[in-house]
């Protein structure tokens, strides 16, 4: 198939970017979306032009590196799919495809389609862990965990940290990302002790680094490639509010 691509090009963080149009012929239906971009880059290089920079690594939907805004959709038009899992069968001859980087103040563009998501690490550093030093752990089966809780914790833990939730949100809110981690740990007895403090610290850091607030539009949930649910945000709010009440009582 022959397609037209409209791609955001930006030399570096300081330069001003712009859309550039590329016509790409002989695209195979069998290509993945990123293989189509590899193919484009090959043609650009052979013409002496600069290839389009984009993040990617595992190319099987688990590392969270890739993330493109395709025709107005975070990760493109397919449901529960990362950009690297998206196939060209979703497109047809003559299509025009617009490709942008994640757009959020907290995720500045580094080059072309690559953004800096290091603020996610900063939020994790604020409290996204259980303080269990190596060697101090009790025997693994000494604390049984009801299967429903373990399964629910797993469902929250599948987040790949790609940032699609932020990109899809009109407020650039990171609540789905943050709440998934808070939920996972709050559901496990190992993580309960620090649950309230964790919620307080992670939320504070999230606000500090420039993410917006949640207004319950649910776009994050619809674009999350791993199917994380809005209910995590409710769980986070519960932990956060009780943390506040406890803090107020003790002062």
């Amino acid at each position: 198939m022959n397609i037209t691509l409209e791609i955001w090009r930006q030399k570096d963080a300081k330069s001003k970017g712009k859309f550039v149009i590329y016509k790409l012929n002989d695209v195979s239906e069998e290509m993945s979306f990123l293989e189509m971009l590899d193919f484009l880059n090959n043609t650009l290089i052979s013409k002496g032009e600069s290839p389009v920079a984009f993040d990617h690594d595992c190319r099987e939907g688990i590392c969270g590196s890739c993330g493109l805004y395709i025709n107005g959709w975070a990760h493109g038009p397919a449901h529960l799919t990362t950009t690297c899992e998206l196939r060209m069968t979703k497109f047809k001859d003559g299509d025009k495809i617009t490709i942008e980087p994640w757009r959020s103040k907290a995720f500045p563009v580094i080059k072309d389609l690559i953004v800096d998501r290091s603020v996610f690490d900063k939020i994790m550093q604020a409290g996204g862990f259980i303080s269990a030093n190596s060697g101090a752990a009790p025997e693994a089966n000494s604390i049984p965990i009801p299967k429903d809780n373990a399964d629910a914790a797993f469902d929250a833990a599948v987040c790949i940290g790609c940032g699609a939730c932020v990109a899809a949100c009109k407020n650039s809110s990171a609540m789905l990302f943050v709440s998934a981690k808070i939920s996972q740990f709050a559901l496990l007895p190992q993580g309960k002790t620090e649950a309230k403090e964790r919620a307080r610290k992670m939320v504070a850091k999230m606000d500090e680094v420039g993410f917006g607030n949640c207004t319950n539009t649910g776009s994050c949930e619809t674009r999350c490639p791993k199917g994380l649910k809005l209910t995590h945000i409710a769980k986070m709010n519960r932990e956060f509010i009780t943390a506040k009440i406890v803090a107020e009582k003790s002062t």
Binding site: A137, A140, K147, A150, A157, Q190
Partner: peptide, 22 residues
Amino acid sequence: NQTIDQLVAAGVPFAREYSGYL
């Protein structure tokens, strides 16, 4: 064995049986 203890303590949600055991 110690590694499994450590990972469970770190919050790794390994599969469990209905009894709650791993």
